[in-house]
Design a protein around this nucleic acid. Structure first.
Lengths: 107, 107
DNA sequence: ACGAACGGTAAGCTACTCCTTACCATCGGC
DNA sequence: GCCGATGGTAAGGAGTAGCTTACCGTTCGT
């Protein structure tokens, strides 16, 4: 159940519309049409994005009558979180070694 | 010191080559040529990717002789981590709610 | 001061991503 | 059995992202 390609997860989140979908689903599970109603793209576009997100393991869908309810998949999101956590910790470690000079954060 | 567009961060990580760069930099800071030597793309390509990563606030560079050393920027990576954390927590919460209550409630 | 190392930028091409419209399949209510 | 609602899929096109080669500026060593 972890077997998702984490890479796919990152690529899935690389798209702005898909991130918007993720944010919507973070609030609560929703049907496809409901998502499309709140996004600036057509319903088929949402369908396509949902397919990508599902393949990446970031969302789960289940049928409910004629509708399909999508919601976030904690496992998938958690996998990305863990990987980012690793980068973050290593960055902090490396940062410590160089702290002696006042880094100009931006530009 | 933050004020990075988090969206830019996600889009930056959406590319496979850039993620490879991030992974390299997570190990230790490196120069441009050094990165290019370990990647399947040319040095100019690496330069372009580094520019994107820098604009997104994910890496910091400083000159060292004729070389430019790049390293991860904990602040930028941390910002993404926080946002992903939020999604993750909400996903867990929503998951709980669904398990306890039938989903028919809200559409 | 000259040459070599290092790296950023310009220009151009290929390929892919994302969107739209049109169509079809499925489910539920009457 | 029909009809409306819902949503997945196909086909096609516009825009852009990423790579390469070529070129130029800067810095260090001698």
């Amino acid at each position: 159940m972890d077997t998702y390609q984490v890479d796919d997860g990152w690529e899935a989140l690389g798209d702005r519309t898909r991130r918007a979908i993720i944010e919507c689903l973070a609030e609560r599970p929703r049907a496809v049409g409901e998502l499309a109603a709140q996004l600036p793209v057509s319903r088929p576009a949402v369908s396509q994005h949902l397919k990508v997100l599902k393949d990446a393991g970031l969302v789960i869908e289940h049928a409910a009558g004629t509708r399909r309810i999508y919601r976030l998949n904690p496992a998938g999101v958690g996998a990305l979180r863990d990987q980012l956590d690793t980068f973050w910790n290593r960055a902090l470690t490396a940062y410590k070694g160089v702290v002696e000079q006042p880094v100009e954060e931006r530009t």
